[in-house]
């Protein structure tokens, strides 16, 4: 399905159908958490969610038409942002709590057992609180999440992409997802003058998601370097890629 062949409404319906299932931790560790047991729970959950994230990305109209190089670069750049914005959506009705999974719900102070994680919990809770104040709608959330993926990387993408028209396709995709978000906001019945203000407020929050993700990546790397938690498979690959990318 080519994105510009879809109406904004059809694009949003496709995003609804693309939504990944909510993942469960399954074997929940006993409380109180230790630094190791909390990090182990969070990384196990992240690894499971990452597999579903790839299935989700492939269902976004036009994503698999991008070059494989571009698909990898986009996911490599924003995977933690996507996990975090999903966490915020699940937590939006639960002030002071982070709903990592239905069987992994953490109060803010439970983060005290992991060195350096409270700062990140507070960023996540603050951004979630702002989304709650804005009364973020589900369809707006779906558009923002897809926008994070499609907007995840630019300059190296343009230069490095071995498929020049992939960048053109990506720009079409970004326009299509922007049209979809504008359409969702317009459908909400807000007075026209307030629609652009709402769009700006939602887009401004994406920089906070990116900031929390950068902090989270640093923290996860430090936890791994200190051998607090073993990291395997896809999560290890994505984490290493960020390390290499920084260098």
């Amino acid at each position: 399905i080519y994105p510009n062949a879809l109406s904004p409404e059809q694009f949003v319906i496709t995003l609804i159908e693309a939504e990944p299932p909510n993942v469960l931790l399954m074997n929940r560790p006993k409380k109180p958490f230790t630094e190791a047991s909390m990090m182990m729970s969070l990384t196990k959950l992240a690894d499971k969610e990452l597999v579903h994230m790839i299935g989700w990305a492939k269902k976004i109209p036009g994503f698999v038409e991008l070059s494989l190089f571009d698909q990898v670069r986009l996911l490599e750049s924003c995977w933690l942002e996507i996990l975090m914005v999903g966490l915020m959506w699940r937590s939006i009705e639960h002030p002071g709590k982070l709903i990592f999974a239905a069987d992994l719900i953490l109060d803010r102070d439970e983060g005290k057992c992991v060195e350096g994680i409270l700062e990140i919990f507070d960023m996540l809770l603050a951004t979630t609180s702002r989304l709650r104040d804005l009364k973020l709608q589900h369809k707006e959330y779906l558009c923002l999440k897809a926008m994070i993926l499609l907007n995840a990387n630019m300059f190296p993408l343009a230069m490095g992409s071995n498929d020049p028209d992939s960048s053109v396709k990506l720009r079409h995709l970004l326009n299509a997802i922007t049209d979809a978000l504008v359409w969702v906001i317009a459908k909400s019945g807000l007075p026209y003058r307030q629609q652009s203000n709402r769009l700006a407020n939602l887009l401004m929050l994406l920089s906070h998601v990116r900031h929390a993700s950068n902090k989270g990546m640093e923290h996860l790397l430090s936890m791994r370097c200190k051998n607090v938690v073993p990291v395997y498979d896809l999560l290890l690959e994505m984490l290493n890629a960020n390390t290499l990318q920084d260098h």
Partner: peptide
């Protein structure tokens, strides 16, 4: 090639069948 090296699992999951297979 460095990107492919860095992302063996990701490449495989992106190229494998339907999204539901991946999940």
């Amino acid at each position: 090639s460095s990107l492919t090296e860095r992302h063996k699992i990701l490449h495989r999951l992106l190229q494998e069948g339907s999204p539901s297979d991946i999940s």
